[in-house]
């Protein structure tokens, strides 16, 4: 994680909504989307969890995410890497096969 996000205590308290089909989850900016969705019981495919294998690529239908470091994997437009993206606004996601 970048030191910037650690210092910025305001952003830590921010909570955003994640829409996935008919489900809705609340996530923070403290960590990437993947572990937060896993704790909510959602299975997302992953392998490296470090942004270099693209296995966790999911559709980002709208909303904003940011990467604390530039992932090595290719990120197609309209997609995001769940393992390393920090959610920065309310977002809607979908799995590529939906």
């Amino acid at each position: 994680m970048t030191s910037i996000s650690k210092q910025d205590s305001l952003s830590k308290d921010l909570v955003h909504r994640v829409l996935l089909g008919k489900k809705q989850f609340l996530v923070t900016e403290d960590e990437p989307l993947l572990p937060q969705l896993e704790r909510a019981g959602i299975h997302i495919e992953y392998q490296c969890r470090e942004g270099y294998c693209s296995s966790c690529s999911i559709k980002l239908l709208w909303g904003q995410v940011e990467y604390p470091f530039e992932p090595l994997a290719w990120v197609h437009s309209g997609y995001m890497l769940a393992c390393c993206a920090i959610v920065k606004s309310d977002i809607e996601i979908a799995f590529f096969h939906d």
């Binding site: 490296c48 294998c53 693209s54 296995s55 090595l72």
Partner: peptide, 13 residues
């Protein structure tokens, strides 16, 4: 497998 995950990213790029 860790190496291969990187290699596949290379060819994807």
């Amino acid at each position: 497998a860790r190496d291969e995950a990187l290699h596949l990213t290379g060819t994807q790029h």
